[in-house]
Nucleic acid binder design. Structure first.
Lengths: 138, 138
DNA sequence: GTAACTGCAAAATATTTGCATCCTT
DNA sequence: AAGGATGCAAATATTTTGCAGTTAC
């Protein structure tokens, strides 16, 4: 068994520090995506804003977490489920934001449907954000 | 014929001012979405940053333009093509961002495909952002 | 020991608010 | 004339950068 967050840090060749371990623990224990503010909250006092920014950046770069944007430009982060590698994210799943509780989640098993683009357009990556009501609020 | 931007202002019950007319002219003459910075550029000097913010907000509220976010959270605006009313936008089309030239456009004729959500989720609104290469850069 | 990581200060950016003045209707 | 719109200053919010000190390996 061992400590899941430690394993992740080791797997991605990152040093083990308190901030990193706690942030990872937060992600592992919560299914919804977290904003910078959410993370500040779970860390309580004693952690530096800047360190959080840098930690999140590091995690995104390594492919441990990915950025999620809502319709208003709000930034959140969530664990990468599949095999994302450094600088190479694969997220062809849908993001869902509940307009009631505000939680944003990755619908890992919902594939983004294919789409017919007009002539001349070449698709590379698709992001899809669905807004509505989640099961908890329904 | 007359002045298109004047007509729009009249239609939406807004006063005719230089800033508004010029910003609208900008939108009408450009097919790609514009960021706050883009607008500052086309207006050249003599216009206040704050006024632009307020003008854009007014236009969004009235349903003249809509906000578009790219994958990095960049904010752009584009004219509403269809019949959007005050506080009630209808944008079931796809947004396309060219990773080459950076232009973001509304693919008005591409409908967002329907999607099967897991049980318990209720869809309200869907946003779709496709990234790739546009015809101009292809 | 050394490179990586943190924490603090400060800079750079982005957006909002208050208020006096000016302009459209 | 009157309310709406603007411009300036300043407040907020968000993210980045520099650097010295600390820590994991």
């Amino acid at each position: 068994m061992g400590n899941e967050s430690l394993n992740i840090l080791k797997k991605f060749d990152l040093r083990h520090t308190d901030t990193r371990e706690n942030i990872l623990r937060g992600f592992l224990s919560k299914s919804a995506a977290m904003s910078h503010g959410d993370i500040e909250t779970i860390l309580m006092e004693g952690f530096d804003r800047v360190t959080i920014y840098r930690t999140l950046k590091t995690f995104v770069d390594k492919g441990i977490i990915h950025k999620i944007l809502d319709d208003q430009g709000g930034v959140k982060y969530a664990l990468c489920n599949t095999n994302c590698k450094s600088g190479d994210h694969h997220h062809d799943h849908v993001h869902f934001k509940c307009s009631c509780c505000g939680d944003t989640t990755c619908l890992d098993h919902v594939q983004i449907p294919s789409i017919d683009l007009p002539i001349g357009f070449k698709r590379k990556e698709i992001n899809m954000l669905v807004q509505g009501i989640c099961p908890n609020c329904n």
